[in-house]
Amino acid sequence: MLPAIQIKNLSYTYRGNLPEAIKDLDLQINRGDRFGIFGPNGAGKTTLMQIMTGLLPYSRGSVKLLEHEVAAGKKQIRSFFGFVPQDFSFYHELSPKENMEFFGAWAGLDQKQIQQKTDELLDVMSLTEVRNKPVYKFSGGMKRRVNLAIAVMHEPAMLFLDEPTAGVDVQTRYAIVEYLKELNSKGTTLIYTSHQLKEAEDLCNRVALIDEGKIIARNSLPELLKEHQQDGLEGLFLSLTGRAYRD
C-alpha cells in the first residue's frame, strides 16, 4: 500500500525542559486507511496530530505527507489534508455559508467552487435551512457538522479528525460517522482520535495505541483484539494502558 503518512524516528519536546512528548516514534498510515490513534490523556495524541498537520515544528525525525516532508512548511502540503479540530474552530458570529465562503477561499477554491461545495455540503449536513443564521445560535450537533463541513470543502486526500463527535447526540454521531465512511469509500484517508471507543470500533480499520509518547500497539483492529485476547477496544485500551489516572 502507498503510504499517506510516513513518520520515522520522530521525537518532540515542548519548551521548558519538559519530558519528551513524543519518543522516537515510527508510524505508517496507508492511503485509504481509517486510522485511529488512541491513548490516555497526555499520551501524546494531540502532539502527534499537531506535528502531522504542521502546527508544531519538529526538528528530530521525519514526517512525510504524500511523500512531502511536513517540516519544509510548503503551502502545497496543507492542501493535501483537512483538519477537524476538537474545538469549534470557526467564526460563531458568521453563518455556516459565510464561514464556508471564507475558509473555502483560504483553502484555495475559487468563487464558483466555493458556491458549489457550500451548497453541496450544507445539504449533506442538513444545514441548508439555517445557512444564513449565525452559528452561535446553533446546537452542539449543528456546530460539529459545520466544523466538519469546513474541513472537507477542498476535498482533501487526508482528513485529520480530533474528537469529531464530542458532545453530540446519538443521531448526529451516527450521521457524522456514516458521512466519514462515505468519504473514505471515495478515497479519503481518515486519521482519527477520540475517547469514544465504541465509535472508533465502528469507524476505524487500523488503530495505534500511544502512551507516554510511544506507540505501544498497532495493527488492524481485529488482529489487535485477537492478539491481546480482548473482545472490544475499551478492554484492549485498559489492558495496555492500565486503570490509573493520567492527568
Binding site: 502546527l55 502545497q76 496543507r78 483538519f83 474545538d87 469549534f88 474552530s89 475558509f103 484555495g108
Partner: peptide, 16 residues
C-alpha cells in the same frame, strides 16, 4: 480567534 481555534484551522490551510 486564538481561543476558539479559528487561527489553528487557518494555519492548516494553504494560505500564509
Amino acid at each position: 480567534e486564538k481561543l476558539n481555534g479559528s487561527m489553528v484551522r487557518l494555519r492548516t490551510l494553504p494560505t500564509h
